[in-house]
Amino acid sequence: QWKVGDKCSAIWSEDGCIYPATIASIDFKRETCVVVYTGYGNREEQNLSDLLSPICE
C-alpha cells in the first residue's frame, strides 16, 4: 500500500512518458493521490492504481 512520501513512478499526462515522482498526498476515498515529479516540481493527480514502482536511476 502506498503512503505519503513514497517514491514511485508515474505517467505524466502531457506526454505519456514515465517519470520518477514522490507521493505528496493521498485521498483513500477516491483512490487518488497527488504526485510531485522529481526534478521538475510539477504536481499532478493520479489514480493510486496507476502508480508504478520507482525507477532505478
Rank of each mutant, 00 (worst) to 15 (best):
Q1H: 11
Q1K: 13
Q1M: 12
Q1W: 09
W2L: 14
W2V: 15
W2M: 14
W2S: 15
W2C: 14
K3L: 13
V4H: 07
V4K: 02
V4I: 01
V4L: 00
V4W: 03
V4S: 09
G5I: 06
D6C: 11
D6Y: 06
K7I: 12
K7A: 12
C8T: 00
C8N: 00
S9R: 15
A10R: 01
A10P: 06
A10E: 07
A10Y: 06
A10M: 08
I11W: 08
I11G: 03
I11Y: 07
W12V: 06
W12R: 10
W12D: 03
W12A: 03
W12Q: 05
W12S: 13
S13P: 05
S13F: 06
S13V: 09
S13N: 06
E14W: 13
D15M: 09
D15I: 03
G16A: 04
C17S: 01
C17F: 09
C17P: 01
C17T: 01
I18K: 02
I18Q: 05
I18C: 15
I18G: 01
I18P: 07
I18V: 11
Y19L: 08
Y19C: 03
Y19V: 02
Y19S: 04
Y19P: 07
P20S: 10
P20Q: 11
P20G: 07
P20C: 15
A21L: 07
A21G: 04
A21C: 15
A21P: 07
T22F: 08
T22A: 02
T22S: 03
I23E: 01
I23F: 00
I23P: 04
A24K: 03
A24W: 11
A24L: 15
A24Y: 14
A24V: 15
S25K: 03
S25Q: 06
S25I: 11
S25M: 10
S25F: 11
S25H: 05
I26C: 02
I26D: 05
I26A: 01
D27A: 00
D27S: 00
D27Y: 00
D27P: 00
D27K: 01
D27L: 05
D27C: 07
F28E: 12
F28K: 11
F28Q: 10
F28V: 11
K29Y: 12
K29H: 11
K29G: 10
K29R: 12
K29D: 13
K29T: 12
K29C: 08
R30G: 10
R30P: 09
R30W: 10
R30I: 10
R30Q: 10
R30M: 12
E31F: 11
E31S: 11
E31Y: 07
T32F: 09
T32P: 06
T32V: 10
T32R: 03
T32I: 10
C33K: 00
V34F: 05
V34K: 03
V34N: 04
V35G: 04
V35P: 02
V35Y: 03
V36R: 00
V36T: 06
V36N: 06
V36W: 07
V36M: 08
V36A: 02
Y37M: 06
Y37Q: 03
Y37V: 05
Y37R: 01
Y37N: 03
Y37F: 15
Y37S: 04
T38N: 07
T38K: 02
G39I: 11
G39A: 09
G39F: 13
Y40D: 07
Y40C: 14
Y40H: 14
Y40W: 13
G41C: 07
G41D: 06
G41T: 06
G41V: 04
G41R: 03
G41A: 05
N42A: 13
N42M: 14
N42L: 14
N42P: 06
N42C: 13
R43W: 13
R43K: 10
R43C: 13
R43V: 10
R43I: 11
R43Q: 14
E44S: 03
E44R: 03
E45N: 04
E45D: 03
E45Q: 10
E45P: 04
Q46T: 04
Q46L: 11
Q46R: 06
Q46V: 10
Q46F: 07
N47E: 07
N47R: 14
L48S: 02
L48P: 05
L48T: 02
L48Q: 06
S49A: 13
S49G: 09
S49Q: 09
S49M: 08
D50R: 02
D50H: 04
D50T: 04
D50S: 05
D50V: 06
D50N: 05
L51W: 06
L51S: 02
L51Y: 04
L52V: 03
L52N: 02
L52T: 02
L52R: 07
S53G: 11
S53I: 08
S53H: 07
P54L: 09
P54N: 07
P54K: 08
P54R: 10
I55E: 12
I55W: 12
I55G: 12
C56L: 15
C56G: 13
C56E: 15
C56K: 08
E57T: 15
E57D: 13
